[in-house]
Design a protein around this nucleic acid. Structure first.
Lengths: 223, 223
DNA sequence: ACTTGTTGACTGAATGTTCAGTCTAGAAAC
DNA sequence: GTTTCTAGACTGAACATTCAGTCAACAAGT
């Protein structure tokens, strides 16, 4: 199953690629069938290999799923960081965080799904490794938000609120909305959740925000 | 559900008791081992019976677990309703809702646990019945909150906010905090979550709230 | 009183399936 | 020729569900 193409350039599948391939397959299957109902055979099939090979690379099923989740977290965070870096103002960055947690991606990767988070949380309750991953992730995001708020305050964009409390509050709100969105609650659609969150953010941080489609409809509001 | 003793059928008492016993056992096991790792044998053992009897009462494992969750939801809501009824002001009632979602119960029933909610949500993503239960439950609580806000506004206790948006927002916030509390996030303890939520509520609804231990530290703040 | 029939509650021992993980051996890579 | 990959066949255990009844209570029928 090694694919050789043209000159001997490394087209052969390296171990790392295989692992990545399998983790990606795992995420797809988890988001379709749920963590508990994900079988090694499913992942193998999705990855185009055999169950035995999956075990060859990941000693156990649990390790596969745990690592897959860890990797998902990491790339999710990395994508977030990259987007933050490309945005100029603190308010635009916060808006991006809100959007990432409520609006569907324009280019949805396979194996990404809001439902994944529900499985993720449920799993964190009993699996120590997953719990650690989640804790770290949550702390990272909260720190990100708090630091953003601080920066915004120093730039005069934001009102004077406690950055840490605000971060806890906003991330909890977004998590809660993620649940509704993932479960397709008829009372909470993505766009509504997005606007609700932004209204909350704007209200708390003291800037006005207009729901208009264009990004960065932000007007600083000094006294 | 009530037993008519008199003319005719009243002998289903034992059967109902058994079912209740089994559902309670199921909830205990789910909250200990997680939904997916709950075996019929566990439930049977906890209920002091045999696996076969469990299947005798609930055709399938899935039905047992689903009904257990439905029942949990219902009693949770009923308890909430009872407590609401015993409180005089809208603000006290909202405070009770917040407390129910953040603070541990004084007398924790066996088989009640925050972690249960995580399993519940994850399950709702794939199991249509559970999804329906959850949707109904969420709608009930949001309606409760909205109606409470309306009542408070009419009584002059609360500021003029959109009750429905507020309900969505608060219930999402509480759900999000439930996740952190269930997973024992070091950054979010129950009391902190409680105070954070109440600050949010008070800020939004325009009354001042003091974190003091005593219930109902509420001061209306009309112009 | 005492058989007989009926029914609901209950059980222990199968049954059958589903899977995670192993084994073996062959194909590539080095 | 030795190490690294890979897959097909296999095993063993875990578990949900079924089955073939037992047991106790109660109700006529005699």
């Amino acid at each position: 199953m090694t694919d050789r193409v043209g000159d001997g350039a490394e087209m052969s599948v390296t171990a790392d690629q295989r692992r990545a391939q399998m983790m990606s397959a795992a995420l797809q299957v988890i988001s379709e069938r749920g963590y508990a109902d994900t079988r090694i055979a499913d992942v193998a099939e999705r990855a185009g290999t055999s169950p035995a090979l999956v075990i060859y690379y990941f000693k156990t099923k649990d390790q596969l799923l745990t690592e897959a989740i860890r990797q998902y977290e990491d790339t999710w965070y990395a994508v977030g960081q990259r987007r933050m870096a490309s945005l100029p103002t603190a308010s635009a960055r916060i808006e991006e965080i809100v959007a990432m947690n409520t609006l569907p991606e324009a280019d949805p990767e396979p194996g990404s799904s809001w439902q994944l988070w529900l499985d993720f949380w449920a799993q964190a309750a009993r699996n120590g490794d997953v719990a650690t991953v989640r804790r770290k992730s949550d702390e990272r995001w909260r720190a990100e938000i708090a630091q953003l708020v601080l920066a915004g305050q120093e730039a005069g964009e934001f009102a004077d609120v406690d950055p840490v409390s605000f971060a806890v509050c906003l991330s909890a709100l977004l998590d809660g909305l993620t649940i509704q969105i993932a479960l397709e609650d008829p009372g909470v659609d993505p766009v509504g959740a997005y606007e609700l969150s932004m209204q909350f953010v704007a209200g708390r941080l003291g800037f006005t925000w207009t729901p208009g489609r264009g990004r960065d409809g932000v007007t600083p509001e000094g006294s």
